[in-house]
Design a binder for these strands. Structure first.
Lengths: 220, 220
DNA sequence: CCGGTTTCTGACTACAAAATCAGGAAAGCT
DNA sequence: AGCTTTCCTGATTTTGTAGTCAGAAACCGG
């Protein structure tokens, strides 16, 4: 069980475990826990199916282990945000949003997982809240509340505001298959990505600004 | 097979088939195709599990049949929108958005299903595109393009605009379990719902308006 | 190159869920 | 009432997948 604190690991063992985690993260995030089979992961990772059980005791633990690959990403974001903690709340929120979009393009798994488990509820959502997204979300809500108090954001419930910003922000990324299928639009191209980032920051975040907030932004 | 054109149906048979469809729609939309079991649906609908196979030949067909329950909802929306087809594109878009929010609160299944299958891709998404959401989405994109041409909406790619409006709009609805878990916020209450509708229409749709568009809105 | 450790596989078991089928109950018709 | 059609169930088969286990292969320090 690769989870327990001390697990004798050779470079080779760690390499295949990492490969399995990567494949698992990709599949879990696109398909959700139940549509993914251990056999499918094994095949994509070019190992036998029992190899998965050698490195991870069961499917649930493999899921958690693969989610922890995202923890590093979140931690880095946290670090950068921390460095900016003396700036106005609105400025921080804008930074956070820009970072969130970049992260979401580079690691589409994050937004998809939250969408999948956030709809279903249950123990995996609880785990995510505890270990991955909970603290981050609470921090963002506080920021939004502060920006509202500063008179920079229009006074909507900060929880709704944060969820809407994020779901609106990653909608295009999560639903890339739908965009392709329905419109023949390919969102994962440099020009489309740039248009998207622009749109979210200018229009969606922009729509929440007060006059004062807009003034602060242009003074930037 | 209840699907085929002529299926001898008595009132009683139709009643249980409808009960099964309703349960199925609810479960499929909250949990996704694979987490739902025929046995679970049967139990919730108070029939034996083979009864499901009597009315619907297999699980996939039950899924499709339950989705068609949403077709009536879509058609009604279509009818109302058609009555307003001579109004300016922006006004129509605003109407559509308001209707979309109401539908999404009353039938949360729709947004969840699109999110689930839109992320995964595959044959069910293709089916949805063909039978349920495709025409509607294309119409909305055309409206957005027109509103941009009118100078009422800022010039972002209309496909991205429509997807972002919709995903941002239903984010709070879809992720209700997350809101409860993470913040203890209950979004499905009259006051919260009102705040939400306000926020989406004013801030999110509002953020996409040009000066001219804003003027048109206030002249309303 | 040898013994021990780590890593991995093939063959298997256990189980849950979809699908089938033979037949019984209920409803409708004459 | 008697016959027929429609509706539904209990019992069973089939299938797909998670998880186990004995042992082979690869690796490593001496």
């Amino acid at each position: 069980m690769a989870d327990s604190a001390d697990w004798p690991i050779t470079p080779k063992g760690e390499a295949t475990a990492a490969r399995i985690r990567d494949v698992a993260l990709d599949q879990f995030s696109r398909l959700g826990f139940e549509r993914v089979t251990m056999g499918g992961i094994a095949k994509a990772a070019k190992v036998s199916q029992p190899a998965l059980h050698y490195h991870f005791q069961d499917k649930a633990q493999l899921w958690r282990a693969s989610m922890l690959a995202l923890a590093a990403v979140i931690a880095e974001e946290e670090r950068l945000m921390n460095a900016a903690r003396d700036l106005p709340a609105l400025t921080q929120l804008r930074m956070a949003m820009r970072m969130f979009l970049q992260i979401s393009w580079n690691h589409p798994a994050l937004g998809r997982i939250v969408a999948l488990e956030g709809m279903a509820g249950g123990e995996r959502l609880e785990w995510l809240n505890r270990h991955l997204i909970g603290p981050r979300n609470r921090r963002l809500v506080k920021l939004a509340a502060q920006a509202i108090a500063d008179g920079d954001l229009r006074p909507f419930p900060p929880e709704l505001l944060i969820i809407t910003l994020q779901t609106g922000g990653v909608g295009v990324i999560n639903l890339a298959p739908l965009l392709r299928d329905a419109f023949g639009y390919e969102p994962d191209e440099p020009t489309a990505r740039a248009a998207h980032e622009d749109m979210i920051l200018e229009a969606v975040l922009g729509g929440f600004l007060t006059e004062k907030g807009r003034a602060r932004e242009t003074a930037r």
